[in-house]
């Protein structure tokens, strides 16, 4: 459980003064949150562990500049996302070969109209009716689907749709144009929707 605000302020002051035990007590309640944010961007648990270690060092280094304008957990979480993006940038050259896959739409006929009749009930209506969002299987399905996306596409989806960053900030952090952000977002959303549509119809993942 996070420390009460006064106790947290004291831990911050002690950690800034060099007390490593205070730093441990300060960050420990938020480890799950920090790890969660990093893992969603990187996908790989080993990479996430390395990035979390670097993020904790960065939090410790930057702590004297923490002004308390936001909650410590929010500030630390932001530092963690930046650490994850740094790791992602460093591995992009090695792993990312952007396949030119089309978004998961269609199929269409030669005039651009649907070839298939739509399902009777939209996937999200089925999913809500059966309470699927809270089910472990759907969490696993999402994680697997995210894992199949190229790193750059997954990072955009996580930052935009899960972390609520605006497109300009994402473009800046990833070094791409806002149009490319929307292109990647479209690819992520359509791919994830296609997976969900297949699994949610009938209420069974």
């Amino acid at each position: 459980m996070p420390s009460p605000p006064d106790a947290e302020d004291e831990l911050i002051a002690r950690a800034v003064a060099g007390d490593a035990d205070a730093f441990e007590a300060l960050v420990k309640p938020h480890l799950g949150l920090f790890h969660h944010g990093i893992l969603r961007i990187l996908g790989d648990p080993m990479d996430a562990e390395d990035a979390l270690q670097e993020a904790l060092i960065a939090i410790h280094r930057e702590l004297p500049r923490f002004e308390g304008r936001s909650r410590f957990s929010s500030w630390g979480y932001r530092v963690c996302l930046n650490a994850a993006l740094m790791v992602r940038r460093s591995r992009v050259r090695v792993r990312e070969r952007e396949q030119r896959e089309e978004p998961a739409i269609g199929p269409f006929d030669s005039r651009g109209h649907h070839l298939e009749a739509p399902g009777a009930v939209p996937w999200h209506v089925e999913a809500e009716a059966h309470g699927l969002a809270e089910r472990r299987e759907i969490r696993e399905l999402f994680l697997q689907a995210l894992e199949t996306l190229p790193d750059g596409v997954r990072a955009v989806f996580v930052l935009k749709d899960l972390e609520d960053w605006d497109s300009e900030a994402i473009a800046r952090h990833l070094g791409i144009s806002p149009a490319a952000v929307r292109q990647r977002l479209h690819r992520a959303r359509t791919t994830l929707q296609a997976r969900l549509r297949d699994h949610c119809r009938g209420g069974r993942p």
């Binding site: 480890l31 799950g32 562990e49 270690q53 994680l143």
Partner: peptide, 18 residues
């Protein structure tokens, strides 16, 4: 957001990182 919410348990790897 709901499907990928914060898990109830802190992953073991995060303690090793700390």
């Amino acid at each position: 957001k709901r499907a990928l919410g914060l898990p109830s348990e802190t992953p073991p790897g995060s303690h090793a990182a700390l």
